[in-house]
Design a protein around this nucleic acid. Structure first.
Lengths: 188, 188
DNA sequence: AGTATCATGTAAGAGGTTACATGATTTT
DNA sequence: AAAATCATGTAACCTCTTACATGATACT
């Protein structure tokens, strides 16, 4: 069974948490903001909206008010909000860290609004932990095999390591931004 | 027209530049090395190999020598090598930087072997240039809209910026590793 | 004889890509 | 009247995912 909502679908739900939007609005967001990692092609967005509506996660209604052509504006249903929040609460896995960093960051970006700051801070701590597990593996792979790799291969691996290192640094500063509070253990 | 070879297909060609490999070998590489960003599922790898063979980029022959079951070992054809090198030589675009950093890094990782160190250094300079164009845009977006974004959204954007910053730093060190030589302009 | 390992493949389904089609309204 | 902009959608195609099927050899 594939995940019942694609990453694009998640992004749409996240955007709709803030405010009702039409497909055209969303295309605009995908062309004009750093969410440009998503394609603004109508062939992706409109079918994705239709799927989410079919699943009962969003509901669209046609608007005629403004002078132009009819817009179909979508808003989140309670079921959609629940599904979105469940996704936000999913654990941080090694697999996601290796294969889908983008998913992790997308989740985090919606987290404050979706499930609150304590959950965001908890996510950052979980991410830190996974990084502490994965980074040494990458580094020891580099040490073990770096010498026999071609220069560009070794450098590419180093670039990956640096990216994860930068992410680890970022989690520290990000946690600081949430303050020390937020569900951490505190013995004694 | 979609690109006639998928990213997985490119990775396969890159691996086959070094040495002939079977599908099973490749699965092993994808499970045991940092190339784990690729799925080790046979449902992806075997059809991809078959497509590459159908296009004339690789040629497989069945090996019986070793005791076990027959292995089908693939090696690059001249056409495959040419197509792979053409990919390596493609320009560094903003679009790839925003949407497919992984493609850029995969390309770079094979570049020394594929088209030589001077081309690798030229790639790094081109990447630097794109980063110099893109990073200020990201940063000014953060300055312009950061204040009204939720904390986790702003932090997620900062994480993206830091990742690109780390990449820019990396290009400098990587270029240094190639020495100052390598096709750079040199007036006077 | 049974199980683990080596090894290759196929089938169904989902979601993206590119390209095309279309329609209403405002501006020139 | 033509062109630009706003706005929604469909069709063909491709590749990946998950799950299943299978077969040969080595080890116990």
């Amino acid at each position: 069974m594939p995940p019942d909502i694609s990453l694009l679908g998640r992004a749409l739900l996240g955007l709709l948490m803030d405010e009702p939007l039409s497909g055209y609005d969303i295309r605009g967001i995908f062309t004009q903001t750093p969410l440009a990692t998503f394609s603004d092609s109508p062939g992706a967005i409109y079918p994705a909206l239709a799927r989410l509506e079919g699943a009962g996660f969003i509901r669209g209604r046609v608007e005629r008010s403004a002078g132009l052509r009819q817009r179909k504006v979508f808003q989140l249903t309670p079921a959609g909000r629940a599904a979105f929040q469940a996704w936000l609460r999913a654990p941080v896995t090694r697999d996601a860290l290796v294969r889908d960093t983008e998913e992790l960051m997308l989740r985090f970006s919606f987290m404050d609004r979706g499930i609150g700051k304590d959950a965001s801070a908890a996510f950052l701590r979980a991410l830190q932990q996974e990084l502490h597990g994965y980074l040494p593996e990458l580094k020891s792979h580099l040490e073990a095999h770096g010498a026999k790799m071609p220069l560009s291969g070794r450098l590419a691996l180093e670039s990956g390591i640096r990216a994860y290192d930068a992410m680890l640094d970022w989690t520290k500063d990000a946690l600081a931004a949430y303050g020390t509070r937020g569900g951490a253990r505190r013995k004694t």
